[in-house]
């Protein structure tokens, strides 16, 4: 026997990338403490008034490992539980009758496609590509990053430094020599600068990162940047 509750869910509805969006409130019934945020959206879509389009959202493994999911729950990327993907976030913190606001992951680098679905792949991938594909992917895997983009969305500066810094923490050991390391880290830092905002060490990213990546990774960006500067100067 579980205690079911009703939540008022305010969802961002936006019919296409070009359209303006707005919040629409729906009452969702049958929510239990074990309901996850994605299941809450499933319930909502089942209970939608006739004729309304289902709410679109990013969905994947629902096991916390693919990095595809992600919404902002009351202003926090993924949701209020620390270091937990949206698909693994339970709504037990919300009491009967409470309001929950769900919006897409917000950042200039993550344009909204429809409703809660965003294109986060493109910008994250340009940075990985700057490290020349496979090595970049391997570095992220070694770091434990699942490329969910939550660090960027939660950051008041729109900075991707936890993602970029984690990549740069793990990239050097994968490089065959120093020249390769310099060339690729430089490209990564340059691309990141064009894509994301500057880092102010606020640490909101480390609160949401499902991989629990540490603040130390942020500083790898400056370390590699300075390293590249010094080397370049010596050669002239």
């Amino acid at each position: 026997m579980h205690n079911t509750r009703t939540l008022t869910v305010e969802v961002w509805r936006q019919s296409s990338a070009e359209d303006d969006g707005r919040f629409v409130a729906y009452d969702v019934t049958g929510v239990t403490p074990a309901t996850t945020v994605l299941e809450l959206l499933d319930l909502l879509n089942e209970q939608l008034p006739d004729g309304e389009q289902p709410v679109k959202f990013d969905d994947g493994c629902r096991e916390g490992s693919c990095g595809k999911c992600g919404v902002m729950v009351d202003g926090v990327a993924h949701g209020p539980e620390f270091n937990t993907t949206t698909c693994q976030q339970h709504v037990r913190a919300f009491r009967n009758g409470q309001r929950v606001r769900l919006e897409p992951l917000r950042a200039e680098a993550f344009p909204v496609l429809q409703d809660l679905a965003v294109d986060k792949k493109k910008s994250l991938r340009t940075v990985v590509k700057a490290a020349r594909g496979p090595a970049g992917m391997k570095a992220l895997t070694n770091a434990g990053c699942i490329s969910c983009g939550a660090c960027v969305a939660v950051c008041p500066n729109g900075s991707g430094q936890l993602f970029v810094g984690s990549l740069l923490t793990e990239l050097p050991p994968l490089m065959k020599d120093d020249d390769e390391r310099r060339e690729r880290t430089e490209k990564v830092i340059e691309t990141a600068g064009e894509t994301f905002g500057p880092c102010s060490t606020l640490g909101d990213c480390t609160e949401v990162c499902p991989a629990g990546l540490p603040l130390e990774n942020l500083s790898a960006v400056a370390r590699e940047y300075l390293r590249n500067q010094n080397k370049t100067r010596h050669q002239h």
């Binding site: 880092c199 060490t201 603040l215 130390e216 990774n217 942020l218 500083s219 790898a220 400056a222 390293r227």
Partner: peptide
């Protein structure tokens, strides 16, 4: 520390 790479 963050901006000079010391904090790695």
């Amino acid at each position: 520390g963050n901006d000079t790479g010391l904090s790695t």
